[in-house]
Each structure stands twice: as structure tokens, then as C-alpha cells.
């Protein structure tokens, strides 16, 4: 996706404004503060107000510079970026059920093959080798507990 920098900034500013409004709304429902006993909502409320002002300022300034035709553009998103992110999310869900060895091997394989352009065989062997190496290093040498999942390893 290609867009101009000021538009992108304005989008971020809009998200921040929405966030600030949400925080203020939540802070209303937190226990009340008295001067001698600032409650849970005290600090978030102050922060939300400052954020509103700043994000508002960013929105205004990016609006005016957005009219300028010579605004720089940015490209956001690329297939490899989405593949990487999707793999991370998949790993999050698969790690405990499948266990470290299976999940991590699959993860590495996908990244090597589809992002790195490595051929099937090298990616497969590489993924398994690296996973096993990490497994032994972290569990045996460092005493970190990694999930076993389905394998008896």
C-alpha cells in the first residue's frame, strides 16, 4: 500500500485520538480520586488529555502539509512482511500444542523458503537442524523449559 507520509501521520494521529478518548472513558469508571488519594484513573486521564492535544496537533500539521503536492510517499506492506507476521502468529498458537521442535521447525522452514528464497531441501534441513540445535542449547545448557507438545523429546 502506497500513501503519502502526511496521510500516514494523520492516520496514526487519528488512532491515537481514538485511544485517548477510550482511556478517558475508562478512567471515568475507575475509583474516584481525591486530592489526598489519587486513584487509579488519575494518571491515565492526565496522559489521555496530553495525548489528545499532541495527536490533534499532528493531525492539523499533517493536514496542511498534505495539501502540498511534493509530500514524500511511503510503501507499507509487502508479501514477505505479511508472511513473517502470519508465521509468528501461527507459532504463538501452535507452540504449546505441537511442541517446540515441530512448531519451530515449521516456522523456520516457512521463513527460509518463502522469505529467504532458499530451496526446499536446504530450507527443510536447515530448519530442522537449527531447531534441534536451539532445543539442546536452551534446555540442556541453560535450563530453560520448552514445551514438548506431541513428541516425546
Amino acid at each position: 500500500m502506497t500513501l503519502t507520509l502526511p496521510r500516514g501521520e494523520a492516520a496514526v494521529a487519528a488512532v491515537l485520538i481514538a485511544l485517548a478518548v477510550y482511556v478517558l472513558w475508562e478512567a471515568e469508571h475507575m475509583p474516584a480520586s481525591t486530592p489526598g488519594q489519587p486513584g487509579a484513573g488519575f494518571f491515565p486521564a492526565i496522559l489521555a488529555v496530553i495525548l489528545l492535544i499532541c495527536a490533534g496537533g499532528i493531525l492539523i500539521s499533517s493536514w496542511s502539509s498534505g495539501k502540498d503536492a511534493a509530500a514524500p510517499t511511503v510503501i507499507i506492506g509487502h508479501s514477505k512482511v505479511w508472511i513473517t507476521l502470519a508465521s509468528l502468529v501461527a507459532l504463538t498458537f501452535a507452540l504449546e500444542p505441537l511442541g517446540f521442535v515441530l512448531a519451530a521447525s515449521a516456522f523456520l522452514f516457512v521463513l527460509l523458503r518463502f522469505c529467504g528464497g532458499v530451496n526446499w531441501l536446504a530450507a527443510g534441513i536447515g530448519a530442522i537442524t537449527l531447531t534441534l540445535a536451539a532445543w539442546y542449547f536452551f534446555t540442556a545448557a541453560l535450563g530453560v523449559a520448552l514445551p514438548h507438545g506431541v513428541l516425546p523429546l
Binding site: 534446555t139 540442556a140 541453560l142 535450563g143 523449559a145 514438548h148 516425546p152
Partner: peptide
């Protein structure tokens, strides 16, 4: 390191 040996022992025993 005895901590990791303990853990490894526990892991093997639990698994079996």
C-alpha cells in the same frame, strides 16, 4: 548445572 539436570530428570520421568 544441577538445576538443568534436575529439570531434565523431571522431564524424562514425567514423560515416561
Amino acid at each position: 548445572m544441577s538445576h538443568s539436570i534436575r529439570t531434565a530428570l523431571l522431564v524424562v520421568l514425567l514423560a515416561t
